[in-house]
Design a protein around this nucleic acid. Sequence first.
DNA 1: ACTGGAATTAGAGAAATTCTAGGCCATTGA
DNA 2: TCAATGGCCTAGAATTTCTCTAATTCCAGT
Lengths: 141, 141
Amino acid sequence: MAERKYRELIEQLKTAGLRPTRQRLALGRLLYGENGDMERHVTAEQLHAEAMSAGVRVSLATVYNTLHQFTEAKLLREVVVEPGRSYFDTNVDDHHHFYFEQSGRLQDIPSEELELKSMPEPPAGGRIRRVDVILRVDEEG
Amino acid sequence: MAERKYRELIEQLKTAGLRPTRQRLALGRLLYGENGDMERHVTAEQLHAEAMSAGVRVSLATVYNTLHQFTEAKLLREVVVEPGRSYFDTNVDDHHHFYFEQSGRLQDIPSEELELKSMPEPPAGGRIRRVDVILRVDEEG
DNA sequence: ACTGGAATTAGAGAAATTCTAGGCCATTGA
DNA sequence: TCAATGGCCTAGAATTTCTCTAATTCCAGT
């Protein structure tokens, strides 16, 4: 990961009131590092496995905590596609998703490629916090 | 439930290759019956509890099986809103949802009130099987 | 370096869903 | 109508995903 992004991560953690601990930095590096801007959609289990095989000793509980804290801090976005299967997306810009049911893979759709014609009024006293669009795709063959 | 709907349900089950058993009919009645056309969003647990208190003896496993079979037969539609929380929707027409995070409630949005400006091309070899739009609403106050 | 509060850990616990093996029941064909 | 057949249902165990707890470890400010 670029040095710039690394400092940025530390800054973002501090802003969010999160101490830049060994584990958070390591997980952040795994999430955003190396293949810098690649879109990533990981489950907690996957990230934990990745950490293990990268020699980073971190517990699964911490992975869950960290992913949720990152999500809270808007460094990640959680996408639920099936009961018992949620992904954390490194892309926090406005965008949507293709979901391939057979393989369980997720793919970003830039917001320019899928826009809503009109946004319905939220019921009284509510405000729309987020719009999630999932296009479920069958892979024939 | 209206007699008409009841016969209709038996017909739909047969068409789907499902035997109209005591349990399926009872659950179908709970789902579509009485308050006929009301939109319903139930979890397996909820429906099971409903069945119990209606004096219908049915196991939770059967409720899960039945809900999935009904979904397969397009009598229901499954909506996943959070890890570990999925609803079955009695409305199988094209439509979308408001999700109220605080209360966990789901509300239909008719398809006329929320349309997509354009549909992105699915990746090669895939076809879009379903479009799910969830507007997550914060209830302030 | 020392200390207090936050973070991390392993493991237990919870919650939702699925599986299994055996018994039951709806359908079909005689 | 009746028995056979194959699908269906059940309880409970198992699995999976995620969360909690209590003890330990670590970071930040002095």
